[in-house]
Design a binder for these strands. Structure first.
Length: 457
RNA sequence: GGAGAGGUGCGAGAGUGGUUGAAUCGGGCGGUCUCGAAAACCGUUAUACCGGCAACGGUAUCGAGGGUUCGAAUCCCUCCCUCUCCGCCA
């Protein structure tokens, strides 16, 4: 069944994004506070209580009250400094006039020297305040959509719908056992060659992996109206800041120190930053990108959790979906995004459920997130295979992605993204669900044109 | 790795110390004309922050940071980025 997706024009190549400078301004601490603001400072000021509650509901610890105090100080200082600068500007103009008329301006110049010194002192103080404020602002999470249930952790998430009715299901071998029996994955060699948490796909395992990536991409391109992108797998620091991985998740990134590049943890980073500092044409929205990438995660601090096989690895493959939309459409678009992913799971004939994350489980950047989970008979639990989020303008503010309204106003777009899909956990589910009594694996119909075999034995 | 060029508004592109927030062209928006459209013509068109109910006023912004100066897009220093040529290489 075809998802009722909006048909969009493909990305027009005439867009001017290719000529834009990249801005490393994000990473320099001495830049206007607004650049850092993920939530609008004015919004925080006017809705302090809501921001504080929201921060708490997300289990975050930003010092919102301190921010407000600093802000009050800053505003007084700004007013004072602006007044000083005004006198200087007025006087400078007068001096220019006097010089032109060959009058002596020594007294004025002397006076302005003192004003200039005062300005310098104030600017110094302002910079200190800005830095302190920026540090707090960076830690304030996105506001949640009102529909998001308040809750502590995953236990409070809400199931929206499910195609996984008859649980638990029988299985004979878990994915590690069957993969090793059929020669599809090799973790020992992965550990030898790279380290723990890396693996080889071998033989038909590699083919199956590649087939899934291609199936996903083709469905998104041909059925769901996406533009395919193949992004760089390493990005600069400004990009990581732009999508919010830095500073919060910095220790989870692989970094190439010599070149100050980061291996991407998801294609979301390059695909969203594609439009960093750009102004999009209203008529081009929504823009929907799909892109394959390898994803690299250090998973620092998560050892001992889901460490078996391919459940949690340092490198995995994923097709990522990223939408740039007009604010008024973003929640409708989120539903479509989820449907695009469900369509893949249906094609793979895997049972899954869609859950709405509660406040405490919703990520820092997100206003509303649906997770898609596939049942693992071996693990006896649901495995997260996709996370679809609406970031509203949170990322767009950080990455400075705007569009021009029909009235000619510049406004931030809303960004959404979702995995569509990450293959490693899908591989786990495939090996468990499509396992036959004799230990062979049945390839679902939709995949056969890509694998060119219909079973693995 | 070696050598050079350059980073200005939505885009292209002027501008080398004093009404330059920034010429000009293009784009967008509004209008005239038209049954409608195109063309032509006219007008208009940056963002952020602070103050103000508002009209409006102030400040900042020409890659980033620092310096010189009464005054910096313009001069000096540092850094970042992009492009071109040569070398190396998939």
């Amino acid at each position: 069944m075809w998802v009722d997706a909006v048909t969009e024009s493909r990305l027009p190549l005439s867009l001017p994004y290719l000529c834009r400078q990249s801005a490393d301004s994000f990473i320099d601490i001495h830049c206007p506070t607004e650049v850092y603001a993920m939530l609008d400072l004015k919004f925080i000021r006017e809705h302090a209580e809501r921001v504080i509650t929201n921060t708490r509901n997300k289990n975050e610890k930003a010092r919102v009250e301190d921010l407000l105090e600093l802000d009050a100080q800053r505003r007084v200082l700004v007013a004072e400094t602006d007044a000083l600068k005004n006198t200087r500007n007025v006087a400078s103009e007068a001096i220019a006039r006097m010089k032109k008329e060959k009058q002596d301006a020594t007294a004025q110049i002397e006076e302005m020297r003192r004003v200039g010194d005062a300005i310098k002192v104030n600017d110094e103080k302002l910079r200190g305040l800005d830095d302190s404020m920026a540090a707090i602002l960076m830690m304030i999470p996105n506001m949640l959509h009102p529909e998001v249930p308040v809750g502590r952790d995953a236990a409070d998430n809400v199931e929206v719908r499910s195609t996984a009715q008859k649980l638990p299901q029988e299985y004979r071998l878990n994915h590690i056992e069957i993969a090793s029996k059929l020669g599809l994955l090799d973790f020992e060699r992965g550990a030898k060659v790279s380290g723990s948490g890396f693996g080889f796909y071998t033989g038909k395992g590699a083919t199956l992996e590649r087939a899934m990536i291609n199936l996903f991409l083709d469905m998104h391109i041909e059925k769901h109206g996406y533009t395919e992108m193949m992004p760089p797998f390493a990005v600069n620091r400004a990009s990581m800041v732009g999508t919010g991985q830095i500073p919060k998740l910095e220790e989870d990134m692989y970094r190439c120190a010599d070149d100050d590049l980061y291996l991407i943890p998801t294609a979301e980073v390059p695909l969203t930053n594609f439009f960093r500092d750009d102004v999009l044409a209203e008529g081009d929205l929504p823009i929907k990108f799909c892109g394959y990438s390898a994803c690299f995660r250090r998973e620092a601090g998560s050892y001992g959790k889901d460490t078996r096989g391919f459940l949690r690895v340092h490198q995995f493959n994923k097709v990522e979906l990223v939408h740039f939309v007009k604010p008024e459409n973003s929640y409708a678009q989120l539903e479509l995004l989820v449907r695009d992913v469900e369509d893949l799971l249906d094609a793979l004939e895997l049972p899954y459920r869609v859950i709405l994350l509660c406040s405490g489980d919703t990520s820092f950047n997100s206003a509303k997130t649906y997770d898609l989970e596939v049942w693992s008979p071996a693990e006896q639990k649901f495995l997260e295979v996709s996370s679809c989020s609406n970031f509203e303008n949170f990322q767009a503010r950080r990455a400075n992605i705007r569009y021009r309204t029909p009235q000619g106003k510049l406004e931030h777009v809303h960004t959404l993204n979702g995995s569509g899909l990450a293959t490693s956990r899908i591989m786990v589910a495939m090996l468990e669900h499509h396992q036959r009594e004799d230990g062979s694996i049945r390839i679902p119909e939709a995949l056969r044109p890509y694998t060119r075999f219909d079973e693995i034995r």
